[in-house]
Design a protein around this nucleic acid. Structure first.
Lengths: 232, 232
DNA sequence: CCGACTCTTTACATTTTCTTTACACCTTCT
DNA sequence: AGAAGGTGTAAAGAAAATGTAAAGAGTCGG
């Protein structure tokens, strides 16, 4: 028996809270509510919800502080509600480790589908365990996640630590795009989006090692403006 | 045992009300009626109808206010009745969360079919789809929101970031009109409608990629003066 | 202390995407 | 039918993202 997916709403305005709550209950989610950031953090600790919806404009503590505090010890997906005109805050929030955002006024559909995506992503991106296969094969490329080894045509390829972690992150999500931000988080434990030069350098290095023709990559696919993905 | 679908008509003109009522009863709907916005809101609270038909030209409070108030706590589908020449109000109402509109004078068939679409849409949103589902299918078109990928007849279509976001925005609201403004907000994070040329260019680009015949679009439908919608 | 290796940063060339412009083409209203 | 406003398309220039080489900094073991 699988229990319901639980969602925590941290939002001080009661009408918005009611609105979100009724939408979520309609989707058969279990709903928790908090009016302040502090209260929200306590609920996260005590109830471990599956997703958090966080209003950036909280009275007691800044939404950003909530994200930072939670991200110190948990990778729980956080979807931000940002009011119009808070575009800059939104970007900062994403940099601090929020997963997605919805701008007010928002439609239920939008919120629901972003929540779903956030949940599914978090399952495999941030935790290294729940993938069943320990070996991932793409064409003539084999990645042994358990043994930490990579082979091309039975020949072992030596990868540096970061190269391996980058490839493994992509491999755990084979076929799915990982955003720059997710990769930064996974490989470098950084939440920011500034220092992605390194990412490009490593993608290049990896390609030189695993691609038949690094100029026309078939394994590591660039999704411009979004991220990278390992083809399946 | 399924009870009848109930419809609330908020309309001050008695002839129009009678007309709509008899049409709906003929379709085996249960009908509620209200003459004023306030009365209508109270009936929504007490009877929870499945759809609301709302005249924009109400005497006591403006229809827009009804939409705003209801949308604070409920996602019940709202279909607008707008008189000719209320084009601007119509768009504003949609921006505020109305689901669809019918322009007076209207045919029974048109009204009925809009109501059905609105209901179907809201059911899809609020009922027990598996939570993990993040794929949207429309005809031979599949949009995988999690993997960020789009397929037509199993063939992957490459979309640029903005093209993808535009399609995803429409897809999350499949069947429902999105106003130009809503799209601008969703895709560009802009709240204005000034720079809409770009929107047209991207609609064109998308159509060229996903429509069988871009000159006669079947997926991305133009709602002149209002916005676009992705067909069901 | 040196050399081998890895990681990060910088600079710059290249590619892709985005926006704007101009104009043609439809609708709708008169 | 003509006018007016909204819409579609192509193309060019601007802007942004990406790829690559190479230099410097840090680390480790001999």
């Amino acid at each position: 028996m699988m229990s319901k997916t639980s969602v925590l709403i941290i939002e001080d305005e009661a009408p918005v809270r009611r609105f979100v709550r009724s939408a979520l209950i309609g989707m058969d989610f279990a709903v928790l509510e908090a009016e302040t950031g502090r209260e929200g953090i306590n609920l996260i600790i005590s109830h471990r919800p599956d997703v958090v919806i966080l209003d950036l404009g909280l009275p007691d503590m800044d939404g950003m502080a909530v994200i930072r505090e939670v991200r110190d010890w948990s990778q729980i997906p956080i979807v931000i509600l940002s009011a119009r005109g808070q575009e800059k805050d939104k970007v900062t929030a994403l940099d601090h480790g929020a997963d997605d955002y919805v701008t007010k006024p928002f439609s239920v559909n939008e919120l629901i589908s972003r929540i779903k995506v956030a949940i599914r992503h978090s399952v495999r991106v941030s935790s290294n365990e729940p993938i069943s296969e320990t070996k991932i094969v793409s064409g003539n490329l084999t990645i042994d996640l358990e043994a930490h080894r990579v082979f091309r045509n039975e020949i072992e390829i030596h990868l540096t630590n970061i190269e391996y972690r980058l490839l493994a992150a992509l491999a755990r999500n084979q076929g799915k795009i990982l955003t720059h931000r997710q990769i930064m988080r996974d490989v470098w434990d950084k939440h920011s989006y500034d220092e992605q030069h390194a990412l490009r350098v490593y993608v290049g290095a990896l390609r030189r090692k695993i691609e038949p023709n690094p100029a026309l990559p078939v394994f590591i696919i660039t999704e411009q403006g979004v991220g990278y993905r390992l083809s399946d």
